[in-house]
C-alpha cells in the first residue's frame, strides 16, 4: 500500500481498524488467494468472497473521507459494516459518541447499534427505498427519526421536519405528500433531511447521486457539500465516480478487489496517483 504523508488532524470520531468482511468459509489460505495481485476477491478454491479486508482509516469532525473503486471492489461492504447493516467478519469500528464514549460498533448488540443509528450515525443510501419508508409522507419520514429520539410534541416535530426539508430544498408544499410520488432527486433530498434529523456527528453516503440525471445529481451534490461544511459532520462518501469524491472529500482511499491499494489527499491522489490501479481509474475518469 502506498501512502501520502500524513497530516496533523483533529481527533477522530470514526476509526475503522483492520476491518474485514468475508462471504463464505474462511481459512488461512483464502486471503492469499484473493486481492489485487491475484486479480479477484473470490477464492477459486473455496468460492469465498473476501469483499473487504484490512481496511483502516480515521475520520474527524468536519472531515469527509472518500472510498473509491470500481464495481465490486468492496465499497458498499465497508459502508454496511460500519453502519451495522451487516456484521463485520474481522476488525473494529470505533465511534466516539457525543457524550465522549468510545464504542466498537462491530461488537455491540444489534439493539445498541440501532440506538446509535438514531442520533450518532446516519446513512444515505443510493436506493431511497432503503433509507425511506416510501409509503409515508416526507414529513413522516423525518418524524420517524425524531420520535425515535424521543420527540413527543407534534408542533415541534412538524416545525423541525419543515426546517430540515426546507434546508434540503424539498418544497414545503410537498411535505405532506407520500414519498413514493417523488422524483429520484427529491427522494434523495428527503433522505438527507431524515439522516440529519437528530444532528448525527457521523453520516455515511453510499453513491448518493448514482442513478440521478447529471443536472439533478449536481444539485444534490452541491447541497451535500454545503451541509457537510455547515454542520461539521464526519462523513464517509462511497462512490465509483471521481467527480463525486473530488467535490465532497479531502482524503480518500482506493479499493480494488476488496483491499485498499492507495490512500491520500484527494486532490494529490487525483493529480498524481501512485498505484497503477489508481492511475488507471484517474485516467479513465479524465477521458
Amino acid at each position: 500500500m502506498t501512502s501520502h504523508s500524513p497530516m496533523e488532524r483533529a481527533p477522530w470520531v470514526l476509526k475503522v481498524e483492520n476491518l474485514g468482511k468475508v462471504f463464505g468459509p474462511m481459512d488461512s489460505d483464502v486471503l492469499a488467494e484473493t486481492g489485487p495481485e491475484i486479480g479477484t476477491s473470490k477464492s477459486s478454491r473455496t468460492g469465498t468472497v473476501v469483499a473487504a479486508w484490512d481496511v483502516n482509516f480515521e475520520v474527524a469532525a468536519g472531515e469527509a473521507l472518500g472510498v473509491i473503486g470500481e464495481s465490486g471492489s468492496g465499497k458498499s461492504t465497508v459502508m454496511r459494516a460500519i453502519a451495522g447493516d451487516h456484521e463485520a467478519s474481522h476488525g473494529a469500528v470505533w465511534l466516539r459518541t457525543r457524550k465522549g464514549d468510545v464504542v466498537n460498533v462491530a461488537a455491540i448488540p444489534d439493539s445498541a447499534r440501532r440506538a446509535l443509528r438514531v442520533d450518532e450515525l446516519a446513512v444515505v443510501y443510493q436506493d431511497a427505498a432503503e433509507g425511506l419508508d416510501l409509503g409515508v409522507t416526507a414529513g413522516g419520514n423525518v418524524a420517524d427519526r425524531l420520535t425515535a429520539a424521543g420527540w413527543r410534541n407534534f408542533a415541534e416535530i412538524r416545525h423541525r421536519a419543515a426546517h430540515l426539508l426546507g434546508r434540503t430544498e424539498v418544497p414545503l408544499e410537498r411535505m405532506d405528500d407520500i414519498v413514493r410520488q417523488f422524483s429520484g432527486g427529491m427522494r434523495q433530498r428527503v433522505q438527507l433531511a431524515k439522516a440529519l434529523a437528530n444532528n448525527p456527528p457521523i453520516v455515511l453516503f453510499d453513491e448518493p447521486t448514482t442513478g440521478l440525471d447529471a443536472s439533478v445529481a449536481a444539485g444534490v451534490l452541491d447541497l451535500i457539500r454545503d451541509l457537510l461544511t455547515e454542520l461539521g459532520i464526519a462523513a464517509v462518501v462511497v462512490s465509483h465516480d471521481f467527480s463525486v469524491i473530488e467535490m465532497l472529500t479531502t482524503r480518500c482511499i482506493v479499493m480494488h478487489h476488496g483491499r485498499v491499494v492507495e490512500e491520500g489527499l484527494t486532490d494529490q491522489l487525483l493529480e498524481d496517483p501512485l498505484h497503477p490501479y489508481s492511475q488507471r481509474l484517474v485516467a479513465a475518469a479524465r477521458t
Binding site: T137, G139, G140, N141, A143, T147, F154, R158
Partner: peptide, 15 residues
C-alpha cells in the same frame, strides 16, 4: 421501538 406507531399517529393528525 415504537417510532413507526408514532409516525402513523403523526400522519393521522396531518391528514
Amino acid at each position: 421501538d415504537y417510532s413507526k406507531m408514532w409516525v402513523s399517529l403523526y400522519e393521522d393528525k396531518v391528514r
